[in-house]
Design a protein around this nucleic acid. Structure first.
Lengths: 127, 127
DNA sequence: CATATATATATGATGTTTACATACATGTGT
DNA sequence: ACACATGTATGTAAACATCATATATATATG
């Protein structure tokens, strides 16, 4: 999620990330989907765009899945695919389920911080 | 905000960031404070820990303020200080006020994404 | 059959952000 | 003289994100 700004002095455009990104938000989103059913990377994409509301970079996405396996949240097995290239099918682990729970708790805390900020902001705007 | 994990293979402990951080959340928090009154870095700390709820690294914090000035959200002036080292006093700019508004809007959107996730998660847990 | 397209996974290069340590300067209290 | 509080700043390394590109297979189309 990048943002294009305009430089105030020379008028050149520069890029910066949009604001409000939750770091690695994609991970609990993936785990929530996998907690319902095992799936493969490419197939998770469509569901993710529905659930996360954001476009996902496919390269980054696969790298994220490999890291999640390294971290123990998921495991993978290759599956033969008649209709195209073979698939690596990901399954959530017990540790992944526990991480999903703790991530949900962290997100509740994050949500409170955001609310606290928005409350203060709205108060300042209504003056 | 770091988190200590235990490695599953060798038992060593490794550190990773806690989950749920909003990237550069500190920036709109600073701007919200400065929209009420100009202040200097060190002095903003106490208020920030109240408003952001998290500890702030002072080195990182000053670097953030310098970047925010470079980006045009704030401007600074040196102020003589009888009771210690001189202070760099930051004031919000018009552009900073506009960024604060757009950041608030982004955070409303972020909040919706988190809610969508938490709803799905709670549904999956109640089965 | 050559080419394009959809499905599918992976990596290289680069820049940004964060964490932690450390440096530097001034004034106060003992 | 020394510790401590106040105050700002930088060096370094790891983690993270972005964008481009590589690789492979199956299907559709001219």
């Amino acid at each position: 999620m990048m943002f294009t700004y305009m430089c105030r002095t020379c008028g050149c455009s520069f890029r910066s990330r949009d604001f409000g990104n939750v770091e690695r938000f994609i991970e609990p989103c993936i785990l929530l989907l996998l907690s319902k059913d095992s799936s493969h990377g490419y197939g998770l994409m469509e569901d993710l765009e529905k659930h996360c509301g954001e476009k996902v970079d496919i390269g980054d996405f696969h790298r994220t899945l490999r890291r999640m396996e390294r971290d123990g949240w998921v495991k993978s097995d290759w599956e033969k695919n008649e209709a195209g290239a073979d698939r690596r099918v990901y399954t959530i682990t017990q540790e992944g389920k526990e991480f999903l729970k703790s991530a949900a708790n962290s997100l509740i805390r994050t949500d409170k911080l955001i609310h606290k900020f928005l409350e203060g902001f709205q108060k300042s705007q209504s003056v």
